[in-house]
Nucleic acid binder design. Structure first.
Length: 534
DNA sequence: CTGGGGAGGGGGCCC
DNA sequence: CGGGCCCCCTCCCCA
């Protein structure tokens, strides 16, 4: 009996030792993996910080250069512009309001976007509920321009088909967010939030909008890890902080295998307990939202104020801007082309475009806004969505192109030539333009902004002319006819190409085999296929 | 059937 | 706003 007891005791002790060993092994494995993970995170953070610093330095340099070039009228213009922007918001026909709760915004920041960027959903609700009421006049006024009848709920119920956002919406959006987000939809009444016919889908739409504005990722936690695929983050915001913050919810024991809960998000150490507290997850995400907001503000500040006069110089343009903006009705095309939004929710689309145009007209202000940038990206991604990492690409463009463009600029190649002393520079590539509208249009190349939408399909275009040209696809208008044959073409350049069929002109010769082609594209294809090694 | 070339058509973008 | 160019995709023809 005694032997039996001793045997059992020994077995128990052995079991304990084995268990401890197993636990230790597991801990070691987890720790190793975690160390790798942390290392990667740290590296990414360092890279991000470095990129941010680089961006700020570049912007600082650029702004200084510009301020030196255009300092005399700068402050005045800024003030004038600011006043104008306020007028648009408060008394004008804009339905876009500055978030009241966005207390990080400053008066000297001309951005007046309520896209919810950098705010949590709750913030958006409060903001839009309050400010939309205050700006209700503007909403009604604008609606009366092109539409009749109540728009918000009406448009929601009409369920406009084919809105570019529909295809992108995530049907898995959680229900608990519905109520609040619905309120956002109904209050804000923007087109990108009023595209669906059902209540639940309304929330999805708003969720989509929020996702694309980089403000709220909670509805789709999967995006947190792969957010770049569908939701370009704010410039300067990362998903890494999400991970860190989420780690707070993990029962950690620290490097010393202690039992203390790791509350310092920067030091998520050995996590023996791999289970994540779902209830805490939103905390991490919420925090991420805040971080995102912080990054947004940081980025924004780097472009605008940050308490630096030189930074303000970045916003400052020249008198031409103000004159242009004030004299040219920025909504002309929109007012005239309200029908462009017929395929969508008209009133809201109109508002949306209206707003877009209004701020885009205010060059060097809204066009410099990361909010603006990513809202434009939003619209693009919903319609054609060509780039899953567009945000990153864009951000990289910001970082890289400035060097390149500055080199051009310093070499005299940054502008299109000419001797004008007032130029408007693209914030992405530093290319100079003689008038703000041109720069504005050009910047859509970088931002992906496509404010012109087709009523027949859902193509969107950066330029009104492109839309006009595209609409011939639907109308079948072919005004250009070949004098040699009966072929007709919708475009002159196509006719020109076609004429080579008759003339036999083959100006493009392969340098390798001498074969000649009528168009460069054939030569290129030929060379790729037959001389690809060259 | 396959691959190369020709042609049409559309979007992007600059001038 | 139009002209123009580039690029791409697609279809067709033919060797």
């Amino acid at each position: 009996m005694a032997n039996c007891m001793v045997f059992h005791t020994q077995i128990a002790s052995i079991m304990e030792v084995l268990a401890n060993a197993a636990v230790a092994d597991i801990c070691k494995l987890v720790d190793d993996d975690y160390a790798v993970f942390r290392l990667e995170i740290t590296q990414s953070q360092k890279e991000n910080r470095a990129l941010r610093r680089k961006l700020q330095l570049l912007e600082l340099k650029v702004s200084r250069e510009r301020v030196l070039a255009s300092r005399p009228s700068s402050v005045k213009i800024l003030d004038r512009y600011r006043g104008m922007a306020r007028g648009q918001l408060n008394g004008g026909n804009r339905s876009f309001v500055k978030p009241a709760g966005h207390n990080t915004w400053r008066d000297d920041q001309p951005i007046t976007v309520d896209e919810g960027s950098g705010t949590s959903t709750q913030h958006v609700i409060v903001i839009e509920s309050a400010d939309a009421e205050a700006a209700g006049l503007g909403v009604k006024q604008h609606r009366s321009e092109g539409e009749e009848g109540p728009r918000q709920s009406g448009d929601i119920q009409t369920g406009v088909v084919g809105a570019p956002y529909e295809a992108m919406e995530d049907p898995t959006t959680s229900a608990p967010q519905s109520r609040t987000r619905r309120s956002v939809t109904e209050v804000s009444g923007r087109p990108d939030s009023v595209l669906k016919s059902e209540t639940d889908t309304k929330t999805l739409t708003v969720t989509h909008r929020l996702l694309h504005t980089g403000s709220d990722h909670r509805s789709d936690p999967e995006r947190l890890g792969l957010g770049r695929l569908a939701c370009p983050p704010a410039p300067g915001s990362e998903y890494l902080p999400v991970f860190h913050q989420s780690q707070r919810t993990v029962n950690s024991r620290g490097d010393g295998y202690g039992d203390a809960l790791d509350t310092g998000g920067d030091e998520p150490s050995c996590s023996y307990t791999t289970e994540m507290d779902p209830g805490n997850m939103p905390l991490g995400l919420e925090t991420q939202t805040d971080l995102s907001k912080g990054d947004w503000n940081r980025y924004s500040s780097s472009l605008y104020a940050e308490g630096s006069l030189d930074k303000k110089g970045e916003v400052i343009v020249v008198d031409e801007v103000t004159v242009k903006v004030e004299s040219d009705a920025p909504l002309t095309w929109n007012a005239d082309e309200t029908h462009l939004g017929e395929g969508h929710s008209q009133g809201s689309t109109s508002d949306f475009l209206d707003y877009r145009e209004s701020i885009e007209t205010n060059v060097n202000v809204a066009t410099h806004s990361p909010l603006h940038v990513f809202r434009d990206l939003d619209s693009v991604s919903t319609s054609m969505a060509p780039s899953d990492s567009h945000g990153r690409v864009l951000f990289d463009q910001v970082l890289n192109s400035n060097d390149r463009a500055r080199a051009q600029s310093q070499g005299g190649g940054a502008t299109s030539g000419g001797s004008k002393d007032k130029w408007f520079f693209c914030m992405f590539c530093n290319k100079g333009f003689s008038c703000p509208q041109k720069m504005e249009i050009h910047q859509r190349v970088h931002t992906g902004g496509k404010p012109f939408s087709c009523t027949q399909c859902h193509m969107r275009f950066a330029q009104a002319r492109d839309l006009k040209r595209h609409q011939r696809v639907h109308t079948g208008v072919k005004p250009y006819s070949c004098p040699q044959c009966e072929k007709r073409f919708s475009r002159q350049d196509h006719l020109k190409m076609h004429l080579k069929v008759h003339t036999g002109e083959r100006p493009f010769a392969c340098t390798h085999c001498g074969k000649r082609f009528s168009e460069r594209r054939y030569l290129r294809i030929h060379q790729q296929k037959n001389h690809s090694t060259l």
